[in-house]
Amino acid sequence: MDRLMDLPATQDAAPVHVEHGGPDGGPPIEFDFSTNACPLEAPAPVRRALLQADRRHYPDPAYAALRELLGAFHGVAPGRVLPTAGSSEAIRRLTLAARLRGVQQAWVPQPGYGDYRAAAQALGLSVRPYASGEALLDGLTTHGAAPALVWLCEPCNPTGESLGAPFWPALAALAGRGHVLALDRAYAPLRLEGRCPVPPAVAESAWQCFSPNKSLGLTGVRAGWVIAPADDDALRATLLSLAPGWVLSAEGVALLEAWTLPATQQGVQAACSRLRAWKRQQRAALQSLGWVQQPSVTPFWLARPCDSGLPARLRALRERGIKLRDATSFGLPGWVRLSVQPPPAQQALLQAWRDSA
């Protein structure tokens, strides 16, 4: 099986056009494999909270009650919790805060979420891509004299893979050199296999970005938070000062409050149980088509259909209301990223693929 870590990493100074899954301006998508959102309905407490959200009034601009709630949920002081309008907004704001501190380079996973690179390039930071944990450690050792913004996504998008346990203690040894360590945890609740490998010491030294809307299947509600390290009051103050007024809407506050409820967490765990079964079924079906598939601990992964005319095949699928995420923008032409979908969607994909042969 091909290993993605063998692919060369490149550095490109050209402006980045970030592509995403989901709506693309075309006809309605009936079966959407292109986003990483959970395809199941959000737990009942979350749905009720959104319906009852007070849209008549501004939320508290300081979000004091929400920060208290999220702080208790994570076992940290409320002052370390900084509300955001989701991960993408957190990425932009944290990159700007690091730039104002004087950071001039950013390390980003490749393949990885395009907003890391785009945010860095928009502010004139030098972008250094890395293709594996080992490559990152080697790069920080070789080029790490100057402080850098270091992005990690655990588990990673688009691969769905998790960095190995030996990587993290080695990273902790380098983290004290003035680097801004940023840990994107958007997909942590969707981990279907194994345990989170991030040691508490690394998490405590990192800027941890959370956004539960994908786990809840509610990507239209843009809401999240950052947990700041306990010992970086200056950068925390900068990040707060850069936030727009009312960064969270009433719906965003309602979603995050409901996220902390035990019933919501139980609902997410139940959804993950169903996704595990559907994932096994979907991977077996794609294997029957001869697709090469990368390992993954999440309900999304990278696959390479055995077809040289992939763009045309993807267009044919799109015309039938089925969308997969072309991985070319990740630097992986010939590959797709796809998410677990319910059995009827899987059957529709298999039939459409065979029909377009």
Results as ranks from 00 to 15, higher is better:
Tyr116Ser: 08
Leu136Phe: 05
Gly112Val: 12
Tyr116Arg: 03
Ser132Pro: 13
Arg117Phe: 00
Ser132Asp: 13
Gly133Tyr: 02
Pro109Thr: 12
Ala135Leu: 01
Gln110Phe: 11
Pro111Gln: 11
Gly112Gln: 07
Ala135Asp: 14
Leu123Ile: 12
Ala122Ile: 06
Val108Trp: 01
Gln121Asp: 00
Leu137Asp: 07
Gly124Gln: 01
Leu125Cys: 11
Gly114Ser: 09
Gly124Glu: 02
Arg128Ser: 06
Leu137Phe: 04
Ala131Asp: 10
Ala122Asn: 11
Asp138Glu: 15
Tyr130Gly: 11
Glu134Trp: 00
Ala131Tyr: 00
Gly112His: 02
Asp115Gln: 14
Gly133Arg: 02
Asp138Gln: 15
Val127Asn: 08
Gly124Trp: 00
Gly124Cys: 03
Pro129Ile: 08
Gly133Ala: 07
Ala118Phe: 01
Val127Gln: 08
Ala122Tyr: 02
Ser126Ala: 15
Arg128Val: 06
Val127Cys: 10
Ala119Gln: 11
Ala122Thr: 13
Val108Phe: 01
Ser132Cys: 08
Ala135Tyr: 00
Leu137Thr: 07
Tyr116Asp: 11
Asp115Met: 13
Asp138Cys: 03
Leu125Ile: 14
Arg117Ser: 14
Leu136Arg: 03
Ala131Arg: 14
Ser132Arg: 04
Pro109Val: 10
Ser126Thr: 15
Ala120Trp: 02
Tyr116Gly: 09
Ser132Ile: 09
Ala131Ile: 08
Tyr130Phe: 15
Leu123Ser: 10
Arg117Asp: 14
Pro109Gln: 05
Ala118His: 12
Gly112Tyr: 00
Tyr130Ala: 10
Ala122Met: 05
Ala120Ile: 03
Tyr113Phe: 14
Leu137Tyr: 03
Leu125His: 09
Ala135Ile: 08
Leu136Val: 12
Gln121Val: 03
Gln121Ser: 05
Tyr116Ile: 09
Glu134Leu: 06
Ala119Lys: 08
Tyr113Gln: 12
Gly112Lys: 04
Gly112Met: 01
Gly133Phe: 00
Asp115Ala: 14
Leu136Cys: 08
Val108Cys: 12
Pro129Trp: 01
Val127Lys: 04
Val127Met: 05
Ala122Val: 07
Gly114His: 08
Ser126Lys: 11
Pro109Ala: 03
Pro111Asn: 11
Val127Thr: 11
Gly114Ala: 14
Arg117Leu: 13
Gly114Leu: 09
Ala120Lys: 05
Gly112Trp: 02
Leu136Gly: 09
Arg117Thr: 15
Gln121Thr: 05
Gln121Cys: 01
Val108Met: 03
Asp115Pro: 04
